[in-house]
């Protein structure tokens, strides 16, 4: 039973500034879900193995269950809640996941969509190999990945057309 200290951390989440008091052992995942109420990011393993907790930190896809909140001072974080536009329109990646039947139970979906976002920001025209590589850290137990790969290609195509 170690003593846990706490500290105030300033983070930018989906464009909003937050000042949060975090314990030294709090992960970013815990802070997002329990302190900021952003429950779209999921807990699947807590060990960095499943990708359900994927968010973007300064544009890079990371497993938020492995990131200490203390280390996020001044970072820009994007979560699944930051994707759809304020009028409720889905982001093209989200729309592509819906349209291509890439969502079954949906528990992996936010994480996979965030990994996709990170991929498509760097590579607008990924090959199937690159798509599979980009989501390889995200476990989906339901779909067999076929429709996820289709959805990512379709999203890339839509985004290229914009």
């Amino acid at each position: 039973m170690e003593a846990v200290s706490s500290k105030i951390v300033n983070i930018l989440v989906n464009g909003n500034n937050y000042e949060v008091t975090v314990a030294s052992n709090d992960t970013l995942l815990t802070v997002l879900r329990d302190k900021l109420g952003l429950t779209g990011t999921k807990f699947g393993c807590g060990n960095g193995e499943c990708g359900a907790c994927t968010v973007l930190i300064d544009g890079e896809a990371v497993n938020s269950c492995l990131v200490l909140a203390l280390n996020c001072e001044g970072k820009e974080i994007q979560t699944i809640e930051g994707l759809a536009s304020s009028n409720g329109d889905l982001h093209p990646i989200q729309q592509a996941f819906v349209d291509n039947f890439a969502i079954q139970c949906g528990f992996c979906t936010p994480g996979i969509i965030m990994s996709t976002k990170s991929l498509l920001e760097k590579n607008q025209n990924p090959t199937e190999y690159e798509i599979r590589e980009a989501v390889n850290g995200n476990i989906c137990r339901c779909t067999g990945y076929e429709n996820i790969v289709k959805a990512v290609s379709a999203a890339a195509e839509t985004l290229r057309g914009k």
Binding site: T39, F97, G106
Partner: peptide, 19 residues
């Protein structure tokens, strides 16, 4: 036809028990 709830699953608004 995609299931109605796939939309809120894609946006993260869908509340699972853990949420």
């Amino acid at each position: 036809i995609p299931a109605k709830e796939t939309k809120i699953k894609a946006t993260g608004e869908c509340k699972y028990v853990d949420d």
